[in-house]
């Protein structure tokens, strides 16, 4: 143990985004989503993972250790507005001949514009997809099942994650988009309600936001909760109170209350009359 501790002594462990800045302040629901999104192991799509520890050379019968080192993947900016079904861009080299220098190459999945239909939201959505995404939707018998069954690390992109939040919110409210047809509403809800048990209300509310958006949402919530009254308003109220206790007649007069309501005051955007 001691040797292991020594080995790790000089290593600087970088703090995660949830440990610095406003990260620790975020609700537990978001932290759970973030860990599922960023720190879970996604499915191997662009390569065949090494599952075994050892491999035997078929010619020499030599046993050699192997380790699973995933290919480094790239996610372009557009990735967050599209539905790639777990695929990514692979940057690497092609070596086309023994006597040729390696050539840089990007393996980009073919993209096409298509439509996905969400039964819960009762909406057709036009998105750019890969063939794999459509196949996954078909294999899961529908876009909603695909979203709800797939963990965040595989959906990866912000578009399906945001849609998943909307679907979960809709389910949590009991499918209000089918309010006109109660039979249909009941059928849809009973089809998807199983998925709801994996999430609490807070988790649904905070699902699928990027860290930046989550922090903004958190800040907005804090801002909305704390209503700031300008000090001048407080002091003014205090002064009027004092004058009243001192039994000064002007404190009760009309002029003091409506002092600011001239036409100039209305023009001035900062001159909004505060409740005293």
């Amino acid at each position: 143990m001691a040797s292991k501790a020594l080995k790790h002594l000089r290593r600087f462990t970088k703090s995660t985004p949830l440990e610095r800045g406003l990260g620790p302040m975020l609700p537990e629901g978001y932290k759970k989503f973030y860990n599922e999104w960023k720190y879970s192991e996604p499915a191997a799509v662009n390569y065949v993972p090494e599952n075994q520890k050892w491999i035997r050379n078929e010619v020499t019968n030599e046993v050699l250790p192997v380790q699973d080192v995933p290919l480094p993947l790239k996610y372009p900016k557009e990735y967050d507005e599209q539905l790639w079904g777990g695929e990514a861009v692979v940057q690497g080299f092609q070596k086309r001949d023994m006597f040729l220098r390696r050539n840089p190459h990007f393996w980009v999945p073919p993209l096409q514009r298509s439509v996905v239909y969400s039964e819960v939201l009762n909406k057709h959505i036009s998105v750019i997809v890969t063939r794999r995404a459509i196949q996954l939707i078909n294999a899961n018998y529908g876009f909603d099942h695909y979203l709800l069954k797939t963990p965040a690390c595989d959906l990866k992109s912000l578009l399906p994650l945001g849609l998943k939040r909307k679907v979960l919110q809709e389910l949590h409210k009991g499918c209000p988009s089918y309010a006109d047809t109660p039979d249909k509403q009941q059928e849809i809800f009973s089809r998807y309600k199983t998925y709801l048990s994996a999430y609490t209300e807070e988790e649904i509310e905070w699902y699928g936001y990027s860290l930046k958006d989550a922090i903004k949402k958190y800040e907005d919530q804090i801002k909305a909760a704390t209503k700031v009254t300008p000090l001048k308003t407080i002091y003014r109220a205090e002064l009027i109170e004092k004058l009243k206790t001192a039994k000064i007649d002007e404190a009760n007069s009309e002029g003091l209350e409506v002092a600011g309501s001239t036409w100039m005051q209305k023009m001035n955007p900062f001159g909004k009359k505060q409740e005293t």
Partner: peptide
């Protein structure tokens, strides 16, 4: 389901 380029390190 594998509908993409599947690559292997040389």
């Amino acid at each position: 389901l594998r509908t993409t380029y599947i690559l292997k390190r040389r």
